[in-house]
Computed example of a mutant assay.
Amino acid sequence: MPSMLTPYTSLGTVALLACFSAPIALAAPASEEHQLLTLVLRQLDAIDHLSSASTNAVIDTQARYTFDYARLSADLDLIRQGISGYLTPSRAQPRHPPELTGHYTRSGQIQP
């Protein structure tokens, strides 16, 4: 016996398949984003490790400017906290993250 599918039946089948596949399609970018942000966290850890190693390096006391590794480390911690908070939110309310300093050059005096 020939198939008795009408245009509406096939359209309904397509719509039903689209409804079931939509959550899968929407979950893929979030999973990819989670993987990318986890990679960013690992890279921040590597940068922080290199920065910590550079902190122990000999600093030229006669240099006019030196790099402020402590401030860089503090900003990296803020970025890491923000990404970790996004990946594993502890609450639903929006928060206001602190601003990064962005100034990594010290002149003469050591500042906190």
Score class of each variant (00 low, 15 high):
M1R: 13
M1S: 15
P2D: 15
P2K: 14
P2A: 15
S3Y: 08
M4K: 14
M4F: 09
M4Y: 09
L5D: 15
T6Q: 07
P7K: 05
T9V: 10
T9K: 07
T9R: 05
S10I: 14
S10K: 08
S10P: 01
L11D: 11
G12Y: 03
G12E: 12
T13E: 14
V14L: 11
L17Q: 14
A18L: 12
C19L: 14
C19R: 09
S21T: 13
S21N: 08
P23L: 03
I24E: 03
I24N: 01
L26A: 13
A27M: 03
P29D: 07
S31A: 11
E33D: 12
E33T: 13
H34R: 10
Q35I: 02
Q35Y: 00
Q35L: 07
L36H: 10
L37R: 13
V40M: 04
V40D: 06
V40Y: 00
L41H: 03
R42Y: 00
L44K: 03
D45H: 05
D45E: 13
D45V: 06
A46D: 13
A46V: 04
H49S: 15
H49R: 10
L50G: 15
S52A: 15
S52G: 15
A53E: 14
T55E: 10
N56E: 11
V58N: 08
D60A: 12
T61R: 05
Q62W: 00
A63W: 00
R64W: 05
T66S: 13
T66L: 07
F67W: 06
F67S: 03
D68E: 06
D68N: 14
R71T: 14
L72D: 02
L72Y: 01
S73M: 04
S73I: 01
A74R: 05
A74I: 01
D75H: 03
D75I: 03
D75A: 01
L76H: 03
D77R: 08
D77N: 11
D77G: 11
I79H: 04
I79T: 12
R80W: 00
Q81V: 05
G82V: 05
G82E: 14
I83W: 01
S84F: 02
G85I: 07
G85C: 07
G85L: 07
Y86F: 14
Y86K: 11
T88S: 13
P89K: 05
P89G: 12
S90R: 08
S90K: 08
R91I: 07
A92Y: 04
P94K: 02
R95I: 15
R95E: 15
P97G: 01
E99N: 11
E99L: 13
L100A: 05
L100D: 02
G102A: 05
G102Y: 02
H103D: 15
H103Y: 08
S107V: 08
S107R: 10
G108E: 09
Q109G: 04
I110K: 00
Q111C: 04
P112I: 06
P112T: 09
P112E: 09
